[in-house]
């Protein structure tokens, strides 16, 4: 569904030293610098796949999405989305995709969202029957009842985001580019949006590329992730494979019924933390069940949980090392 080969986007930016002297120098001779926002990115995504696109701010995630959505003209390389070259922005291509930007809105501020929906219905040439069916479905999934007739500016951030999503998906696109769709939303609303995206993916076999700083979005929706850093892909593969590769240990959390000295705990596995009756041990992945069994039988354990390390920590380590290759 999506094929990207050696995609590049370079920007020329002006540079100016601070202060009056810098302004004067810049007035007579402007310094420019080329920034390689995306620098040779290649990947393929199959129809119906949901992929998390991760990276720090300025890593090139959004620029890549914008190129795939046809907003930006690539400096070099090729991209095909549903068989179309995005930048040609053909009408049939635009009816196949959508790009939702959590920090931007397409709804008209002064009018109810339902007015913007009607315009989208006309522009995307959605038949009345299909429009009504889609609206009914979205109203149920996103709980839109009662907010469609309110002025957009009077909606809460969460309500607005739900309407934005509905407006962006009204034409039932096959490819979804979601750029921080849950930014600024409370936990409940984040869950609701995630559930909606998952349901949409299931219902329409839609291909989804998702960027988010909330790792919970990615872990809940995406099996595969692509990690970009400074315009390059530094990891492309299964999220679980990344976790296994980057962190060969699992975290065994113990709640003890009496205080145990650190040395004793260390004899089982390295201790990540120890605070009174609560301890966290880094247990090698392959020995988890064996060591957990020993801990339960040999120590006064009131409760035990086994977890994977925090995905955000793993991604952070990945940015620092930049050595992991899929």
């Amino acid at each position: 569904m999506i094929e990207v080969a050696n995609l590049e986007k370079h920007y020329t930016v002006n540079e100016k030293e601070p202060g009056i002297a810098g302004s004067l120098r810049s007035f007579f001779s402007r310094k420019t610098k080329t920034v390689k926002a995306v620098d040779g990115v290649s990947f393929k995504i199959a129809a119906g796949e949901m992929v998390g696109f991760l990276g720090a701010n300025g890593a090139g995630k959004t620029t890549t999405l914008k190129m795939l959505a046809g907003l930006l003209h690539p400096t070099a390389g090729t991209a095909k989305v549903a068989g179309f070259t995005p930048f040609e922005r053909r009408s049939s291509f635009l009816k196949t995709i959508t790009l939702v930007m959590g920090q931007k809105q397409q709804l008209l501020w002064d009018l109810p969202a339902s007015d913007s929906f009607l315009v989208n219905q006309a522009i995307y040439e959605i038949p009345d029957l299909e429009y009504r069916a889609t609206m009914k479905e979205f109203t149920e999934l996103l709980d839109l009842d009662g907010i469609l007739k309110k002025q957009v500016r009077k909606l809460s951030l969460g309500e607005r985001m739900k309407c934005e999503l509905a407006a962006a998906l009204l034409h039932r696109p096959k490819v979804l580019f979601l750029d921080e769709p849950t930014i600024g939303l409370d936990v409940n609303m984040q869950v609701r949006i995630r559930e909606f995206v998952a349901a949409y993916n299931q219902r329409f076999n839609a291909t989804v590329i998702l960027t988010s700083h909330y790792m919970a979005d990615v872990t809940a929706l995406c099996k595969r992730i692509i990690v970009v850093d400074k315009g390059h892909i530094i990891f492309d593969g299964d999220l679980s494979a990344l976790i296994e590769r980057s962190s060969p240990a699992k975290i065994v959390k113990l709640e003890l019924s009496k205080v145990i000295p650190r040395e004793i705990l260390e004899s089982y596995a390295p201790v990540k933390s120890l605070d009174g009756l609560f301890a966290e041990l880094l247990v090698p992945r392959l020995e988890t069940s064996k060591i957990a069994g020993r801990l339960l039988s040999e120590l006064p354990v009131a409760d035990v949980t086994i977890e994977d390390p925090d995905i955000e920590e793993i991604i952070g380590q990945l940015f620092q090392s930049q050595t992991v290759k899929s």
């Binding site: 959505a69 046809g70 907003l71 922005r89 995709i97 790009l99 930007m101 397409q106 995307y124």
Partner: peptide, 12 residues
């Protein structure tokens, strides 16, 4: 301001 983006995404 980049506000053109949402307009460019529409088939019109």
């Amino acid at each position: 301001q980049g506000e053109l983006s949402s307009r460019l995404l529409r088939p019109i």
